[in-house]
Amino acid sequence: MAKTPAVVRAERRLYDGAPPVIPHQPLGAACIACHDGDGLAVPDLGYAPPMPHAATAGMSALSHCQQCHVFQRTGERFRDNSFAGLRQDLRRGRRLYGGAPPVMPHPVFMRENCTACHAGPAAREEIRTSHPERRNCRQCHLEERLSGGFQRP
């Protein structure tokens, strides 16, 4: 029986917010050959989702994938580790009122391409958008800043 997508997602990350490890072996191709545009269905391997990093401001996040994402060459550990990381917040984004568009429950930094995770074949059911045709997500969905509301200076 297959693991749930949420479990699979968690397995590939040290904690929510850490970059996922690469879940396949090196294929001898540039990462961008598959993980671009709308992603790519690769025969015998599955669907390669597009990157969520669309033009992350000023840090050229698209240019050196293995700076953050690494292949896993063994299943072993060097030593055990008891780290228990932040887990994904599966609660929905807050709404000002019923029917209002929810605010994004996570920061946008490095996740500017919303459709990478919220639409297409890789999108998990619980976070899939009902309206993928409306590409300008941030027209209606605001980023929830964690620092609290407006205060007059």
Partner: peptide, 19 residues
């Protein structure tokens, strides 16, 4: 400016090795 490398993103586990 918000970016790290793979070592930096995996920093917290460095504190919690079993030994």
């Amino acid at each position: 400016r918000g970016l790290l490398c793979v070592k930096g993103y995996h920093l917290p586990a460095m504190l919690y090795g079993a030994d």
